[in-house]
Design a binder for these strands. Structure first.
Lengths: 230, 230
DNA sequence: TCAAAAACGAGAGCGCTGCTCTTGCATCGG
DNA sequence: CCGATGCAAGAGCAGCGCTCTCGTTTTTGA
């Protein structure tokens, strides 16, 4: 499957990579809305119709970029997770949150592609759901390690509604059966709330509201960790 | 200033309204990316160039829609605030959060325009910042009332970093000088986190993760309220 | 009151977009 | 070696935002 059969296939891989690379350049520079197939082709010295041999449509090219971006972000989060193995779980939480935020601030247009408005005619294909889960699973991993070390305190929220318990059980069966249900519910909420914090900063909603962004983010993430029970 | 001088000015107001109305229809149906000046003009039975007499560019038309959307969302939040005057602050918090979420779910494309990826060449003009603050100020109002009633407990977070305190003081001087600084910091975080919860739901990130959306949202909002000290 | 000024709708047109189809050439497999 | 396949190029279609001009209508001010 992954054996390169000949010069043709090798060339195909190379061109596909060059297209993605140039597209990523334009995405980072101008944003998804200004990403143009014709401009990519122009920059690569080919004619626009030739590009359709490699990507059947602009949306498919965008999807490829989305997957790559999810992977890059997931990589950053998992690197922070691995780098803090053994640390206190509160520190690890902050580290993963910080890594996520740092990546988002460094790649705002890619971040917008992942967590901003969905592309109009676009529904997430199967290939994106695994890469999209990596940040969340890194957060879950922290909680699992903390739980194993007995550092996990139960969230002080009210009783968990039954329907939420059902959702959480399905998740637990697939990923983290050892975590208490209220913790998993808190994790899910904290996961989305983390991206609320980051999204507001990247998209400019903190303009003239929060200026000490680093300190505010750390302080708010600490609150999230406490909400989860870390 | 707001006196209608003659038939021409009256017609202008009418046409401007019709354009916004049709544009809002297309925005709600297809999303901002598919909103086309030419299609709006076509639907209104005029030629596309005529539309430029009313809006100097597509971005200006979008900006007008953004302001209207912020106002509609703010109205919904403030209505929930007013409807729960006198209730316990936790109830009021949930009510405002629910109203915000309900509006977002009912107007996903408008919501995406407000809190999704910013439009490429777009920087929020002065006219949008007041309407954009209405939901946040509704949340602040709940905390102020709770504080006045002595129902507010101090957030159990760590000590507030000095830089965050400075931000918060600026905010307090302008809007809510009576609230304790840690509460204001918590409010700001909860404000963004609320839109993290809502955004994940509207943009489909809870697909196959959270199915009991209503219950999960209420439960998570209760946690937010506790984080603020309500 | 009447002419100058301003506002307006229609139309043509520019350069751009995503995408399709056809044509001719290079490469690959039997 | 030859038919099948892969590929780049070009022309072309429909749509887009936006500009400019032109004739008409309304408003304005001396």
């Amino acid at each position: 499957m992954s054996v390169i059969r000949g010069a043709r296939e090798r060339a195909r891989i190379e061109v596909t990579g060059a297209i993605k690379e140039e597209a990523r350049r334009q995405l980072a520079a101008e944003g998804a809305a200004r990403l143009s197939l014709r401009a990519v082709a122009r920059e690569l010295g080919m004619v626009s119709s030739a590009l359709y041999r490699y990507f059947p449509s602009r949306d498919e090219l965008l999807t490829a970029l989305i997957i790559d971006a999810y992977d890059a972000l997931g990589e950053a989060a998992e690197a922070a997770l691995a780098a803090t193995a053994g640390d206190r779980s509160g520190e690890r939480w902050i580290a993963v949150c910080r890594a996520t935020r740092t990546w988002a601030l460094a790649h705002p247009h890619e971040y917008a592609l992942l967590y901003g408005s969905p592309v109009p005619g676009y529904t997430a294909p199967q290939d994106t759901i695994a890469p999209a889960s990596r940040v969340g699973l890194a957060l879950v991993a922290i909680a699992r390690d903390a739980h194993a070390a007995g550092e996990l305190t139960a969230p002080a929220n009210g009783p968990l509604p039954d329907e939420v318990g059902t959702d959480v059980e399905r998740f637990a069966a697939e990923w983290a059966s050892d975590l208490p249900k209220p913790t998993l519910a808190g994790l899910t909420a904290a996961w989305s709330q983390l991206f609320g914090l980051i999204g507001f900063e990247v998209f400019g909603h903190f303009h003239r509201v929060v200026e000490a962004r680093d300190a505010f983010f750390d302080h708010s993430c600490a609150a999230l960790a406490r909400q989860v029970g870390l």
